[in-house]
């Protein structure tokens, strides 16, 4: 996979092109696992296996088709890729060995980075709060994550949503599965700044590579 991506990147760089008008080449070069797209034969097994298949605006095999049909905004702006539950049913069943879920994840991240992802999929919000939560202390703080989601749309709705989910919260509290203290304190890695340094370095390397493709 690394090899195919590399060849593609170098060939394009040599001609100084920027992929405009060639969404397939863009996906192959810039989206994680994007080089798999042309392996899809449109059999539809992924879409038929997806637990939320009927909830996708464009189910996975259609996404592959739309990429090849150069429908950039339709793919990156669609709420579809935000419906992946990471269950891997598509991955184990694809007769061509395409890591379908991973391509969907790659597209989701790429759409966010390009500023083209729709703002409203709840899973996008959850994922963004999740990552902030991880980066903060190195470990997920569940109560903090839950509260950040409940209050994502402001105080009034937050209070309403908190009341609605209070049974689950109280149940977990009573069962010792949600610590009152964790919402404020919570333990993380010893030196979160050091973990962040690793993540920031990783991000910088990734962005430098992406920038090299833009030239």
């Amino acid at each position: 996979m690394g090899e195919a991506g590399k060849v593609m990147i170098e060939a394009v760089e040599d001609r100084g092109e920027d992929y405009s008008g060639d969404f397939l080449a863009e996906v192959e070069a810039r989206v994680e696992e994007g080089e798999w797209v042309t392996m899809c034969t449109q059999c539809g097994v992924c879409s038929g296996s997806c637990p939320l298949g009927p909830d996708w605006e464009h189910p996975p095999h259609r996404i592959f088709q739309l990429i090849r049909a150069n429908r950039r905004d339709e793919v990156l702006g669609s709420p579809s890729v935000w419906m992946c539950t990471s269950c891997h049913a598509c991955v184990v069943r694809c007769p061509r060995g395409v890591p379908v879920a991973h391509v969907m994840h790659g597209l989701a991240h790429y759409a966010v980075r390009r500023g083209l992802a729709p703002a409203d999929p709840p899973t996008r919000r959850l994922a963004e709060r999740f990552w902030e939560n991880v980066v903060r202390t190195g470990r997920v703080n569940e109560p903090r994550l839950a509260l950040s989601l409940l209050f994502a749309n402001g105080l009034a709705e937050g209070v309403r949503r908190t009341l609605r989910s209070r049974d689950a919260g109280l149940g977990l509290l009573k069962a010792g599965r949600m610590s009152r203290l964790a919402a404020v304190a919570g333990d993380g890695v010893k030196d979160p700044a050091e973990l962040r340094a690793i993540l920031e370095k990783a991000r910088a390397i990734e962005l430098a590579k992406a920038a090299a493709l833009e030239d």
């Binding site: 994680e32 989701a108 980075r113 963004e128 990552w131 902030e132």
Partner: peptide, 18 residues
């Protein structure tokens, strides 16, 4: 000193390398 694995949502904020 283990840290979070990134779970099934890490790709959105974390991309590939992070």
């Amino acid at each position: 000193d283990w840290n979070c694995c990134g779970a099934s949502l890490g790709h959105v904020g974390g991309g590939e390398l992070p």
